[in-house]
């Protein structure tokens, strides 16, 4: 359904996406995992054909570079936060996107009901809560009933209730057989939704794995932050990755995912390798930690 081969996207001398290749089959649900700046969003924008890139991306049978518009017909896109004119009313926004997608406006009513936004048609976009905006973005994405849904950290700006609502909708879409590609910081979302996990680090795809093999005790994963000397961060991250941990360098230390009953493992590994750990912290919610930065 989606073929990505040797995709490179540079901003000046910096490669935001650096030689990424992968393949997604129809009906698969894939999580893009990585810290801020890992290249997830840039990769998604390349997939949508809104950024120029080197390499090859084929969505369905459409080459994104040559037939971006046709490729986008197969994709419903949900951004981190819906960006639409604040003054527009919810109903008008839906009808506008229905026209762009050549969909009968009657479908808008049906979708707004599905996402629980019936009765809010007269509200302006600026008056919607974060959760409502994301539900609207999901409704827009589903207008033409596309086979592929791409979501860029769809729950990162939402509170617990909003997250749960969006997550449930994504599970429904997965059950309907949609191909889903989503970027996320949250292990619980990845475990609950993804069949496969693409781990990105500094623009590179460093691992193509499954949540089950990554976190054998699914649902019992915790994120801990280890603070080591700056010059040792890279080597420490490599060491931990070699031992099977998922590690992110987030500018404030190493964020390491570990089973909740084996949190000492990464600390012991680093200690044995002679890496001094200056401090450590168990993060209840990795996403909140990211958001707090």
């Amino acid at each position: 359904m989606i073929h990505v081969k040797g995709v490179i996207k540079k901003f000046g001398p910096v490669a935001a996406v650096d030689g990424v290749s992968f393949h997604i089959d129809e009906g698969e649900s894939i999580a893009l995992w990585g810290s801020n700046g890992a290249g997830k969003t840039t990769l998604i924008r390349c997939l949508l054909g809104v950024l120029r890139f080197r390499g090859r991306i084929v969505v369905g049978d459409e080459n994104v570079k040559r037939r971006g518009k046709m490729a986008r017909r197969l994709i419903g896109y949900v951004p981190q936060e819906l960006a639409f004119h604040d003054d527009t009313r919810l109903g008008a926004a839906m009808i506008f996107f229905a026209k762009l997608r050549r969909v009968d406006p009657a479908r808008c009513v049906e979708l707004l009901e599905q996402v629980g936004l019936t009765g809010h048609e007269r509200k302006r976009v600026r008056d919607l809560s974060g959760g409502m905006k994301q539900r609207l973005a999901l409704a827009v994405a589903m207008l033409a009933d596309p086979p592929i849904i791409i979501l860029d950290e769809p729950t990162s700006n939402l509170d617990a209730v909003g997250r749960s609502e969006v997550f449930e909708m994504l599970q429904v879409l997965k059950r309907k057989g949609k191909t889903i590609l989503f970027a996320s910081h949250r292990p619980d979302e990845v475990i609950g939704l993804a069949d496969r996990l693409l781990v990105m680090e500094k623009g590179r795809l460093v691992r193509d794995t499954t949540p089950a093999s990554q976190w054998p005790a699914a649902g019992a994963v915790q994120t801990m932050r280890l603070v080591v000397a700056g010059e040792r961060e890279e080597s420490a991250a490599t060491l931990l990755r070699d031992a099977g941990h998922i590690v992110h360098l987030n500018g404030r230390g190493l964020c390491v995912l570990a089973p909740h009953d084996k949190k000492a493992l990464p600390i012991r590994l680093l200690a044995q390798a002679g890496v001094d750990i200056h401090d450590f912290e168990i993060l209840e919610d990795f996403n909140n930690e990211e958001g707090a930065r």
Binding site: V50, R72, P79, L82, F84, L100, R101
Partner: peptide, 14 residues
């Protein structure tokens, strides 16, 4: 600047 351009271009439009 508002970020709406990206969202519009992510639709099936040229």
């Amino acid at each position: 600047e508002r970020g709406t351009l990206l969202y519009l271009l992510a639709q099936p439009v040229s």
